[in-house]
Computed example of a mutant assay.
Amino acid sequence: MTWRRVDENDFPLLAQWLSRPHVARWWNHDPSAEAVLRGFGPAARGEEPSEDLLASVDGRPFGLVQCCFLSDYPDYAAELATLADVPAGAMTIDYPIGDPDRTGHGLGTRMIESVLHRIWTVHPSATCVIVPVVAANRNSWRALERAGLRKTAEGDLEPDNPIDDPTHHLYRTDRP
């Protein structure tokens, strides 16, 4: 699995993925070109502290992972802190597999394992990774469990998609 930062040439692919039903259900993001530019442009240009990473296997992109230090987003960190301890150096990830033909084969788990390895290598100050997942998104939290993260809390957080119940599971893994 290889990783590279998303750039503006990837925006049409991201728009295509965001419009796919299996992604749109959990990533409540407008797939229009303008919205993708607005949502992903700042990170691609280095104007935002998060990383948007494209995951590929055999040179073929299949997924996206967003990584950031929670301290760079204090309001979000404070929301997570209502459910669990958010230590200094905590990071978080969010991830879809965009290509529907690549779902259901364990690739999500491999992608999470691989990005965790990348985080520990590229971000020496990262102490842990905390991932909130809406409780109804069973496939997502099962992939986290298979990748070795453990459920550390459950409670209400503002859902990304307003149709979802606010109940979330919080998963965590610490630097090995």
Results as ranks from 00 to 15, higher is better:
E47Q: 12
L107I: 01
R118Q: 12
R25V: 14
G106I: 01
A44C: 04
D72R: 06
S71G: 11
L54V: 15
G39C: 04
Y73I: 04
E51K: 11
A78Q: 05
H29W: 10
A88E: 15
S19G: 15
T103P: 00
G59V: 06
Y73F: 15
E48H: 10
D75L: 11
S50N: 12
V57H: 05
A44R: 03
R45H: 04
R118H: 10
P87T: 09
D30S: 07
I97D: 07
S71W: 02
R38L: 04
R25G: 13
P42W: 03
L37W: 07
L54Y: 02
R102A: 13
F62N: 07
P61D: 11
L83V: 09
I93P: 01
G106M: 02
D85Y: 09
T82Y: 09
I112E: 03
L116G: 01
L64S: 08
E79P: 08
E34Y: 08
G41C: 04
A55K: 03
T82W: 07
D58W: 00
D75W: 15
S71K: 10
G41N: 05
F40Y: 15
L37M: 14
D52P: 00
F62Y: 15
E48K: 10
Q66S: 10
T109P: 05
E48Q: 14
D75G: 12
I119C: 03
D30F: 14
I112K: 01
G89V: 00
T121Q: 13
G108W: 01
G89C: 03
E47W: 06
R102I: 13
T92M: 04
R20L: 15
A88M: 10
D94E: 06
G98D: 07
A44Q: 01
F40A: 10
L83G: 00
L53S: 00
A55M: 12
P96M: 13
A43M: 11
A55C: 08
V65E: 01
G39S: 13
P87H: 08
R102E: 11
P61C: 11
V23A: 04
L37I: 13
E34T: 11
R38H: 05
F69W: 08
D101Y: 08
A24P: 11
D94A: 07
T121K: 13
F40H: 10
R102D: 05
V23P: 15
G39A: 10
L53Y: 00
V86W: 05
I97G: 07
T82R: 14
L116E: 05
D101K: 05
G104S: 02
H22E: 15
Y95N: 13
I97L: 13
L54E: 07
